[in-house]
């Protein structure tokens, strides 16, 4: 319970990470104070709207070192697939306030472009710059250490990924958040450690029994262990969950280790053909 409370607090802190800045902080610098107020006007309008962007431009013109406006102006470009424009803006924000925006840029590179190497470079650089907790990704789904582990996993550096899961979830006492054991389980499944995969996927279910995806990988691992009864039960459950929309969804992108109905049905067909 205490751990859950800490997790919620940390998630809340992360979600607030890019909450509007407190303009009072800039009172001593007239132009930057006005720039902050312009940014506050900008975010009152629909994100990406002409009016909102005009206010951000005005904010930047008033105070060229006001990093928040570069970052926030870039968000609609990122979400709408205009990555060149986004990158120029976020790079400027990172240049001005690296410790504030490196983790965010790294996460976006992973989430929107599967730019694993770029994300690793950003998150590792952030880690080398600070001696405090680097926090969660923008969506709140993962601690940035886990996001980093996912990047290493995706480029095939399994040992590094595993070490990060171990260090973050177990050794540091940080504990797992909502999707961590799922991905760790998938990593071990892909590495051929099926008993370990089953252990982690069951931990995921114990912690958050929501996703059909977890049962899909649990089924695959059971099959490899020749636990055919458990395999059939888990794959049926994966389908049941999927059809009841108990699956992982993200507003903007497909998530890592995503499973689709067609994958589940392929397994079910295989079972039927063996009977």
């Amino acid at each position: 319970m205490k751990k859950l409370g800490i997790t919620i607090l940390l998630l809340a802190c992360t979600i607030l990470l890019f909450a509007p800045p407190n303009c009072e902080v800039y009172r001593g610098d007239k132009k930057c104070f006005e720039a902050c107020e312009e940014a506050m006007l900008a975010i009152r309008y629909r994100q990406g709207s002409y009016t909102s962007q005009v206010h951000f431009d005005k904010s930047i013109a008033l105070c060229e070192s006001f990093a928040y406006s570069y970052m926030e102006k870039g968000v609609p470009f990122l979400k709408r697939g205009q990555f060149i424009a986004w990158k120029k803006l976020i790079d400027k924000a990172v240049e001005l306030e690296p410790t504030a925006y490196l983790g965010y840029r790294g996460w976006c590179r992973l989430q929107f472009l599967r730019d694993y190497e770029g994300a690793i470079a950003d998150i590792e650089e952030l880690k080398s710059m600070v001696n405090y907790d680097i926090g969660f990704c923008q969506t709140g789904d993962y601690h940035l250490n886990i996001a980093l582990a996912l990047c290493y996993k995706e480029i095939g550096e399994v040992e590094k990924a595993r070490a990060l899961f171990q260090e973050h979830i177990i050794d540091s006492g940080y504990g797992a958040t909502i999707f961590d054991y799922y991905h760790w389980g998938v990593l071990e499944y892909e590495a051929g450690n099926y008993a370990l995969a089953i252990d982690y996927l069951n931990r995921q279910i114990a912690m958050n029994d929501y996703m059909g995806e977890t049962y899909y990988y649990l089924a695959l691992a059971q099959k490899e262990m020749n636990h055919m009864k458990e395999y059939a039960k888990a794959i049926q459950k994966a389908k049941e969950y999927y059809l009841n929309e108990r699956v992982r969804r993200d507003t903007y992108t497909e998530t890592i280790d995503k499973i689709y109905l067609v994958d589940i049905e392929k397994e079910l067909l295989a079972i039927q053909s063996e009977m």
Binding site: G48, S49, Y50, P76, F77, R80, G81, Q82
Partner: peptide, 9 residues
């Protein structure tokens, strides 16, 4: 409205 895109994208 005829010439300038209104929103990003």
């Amino acid at each position: 409205t005829d010439t300038i895109p209104m929103d990003v994208g």
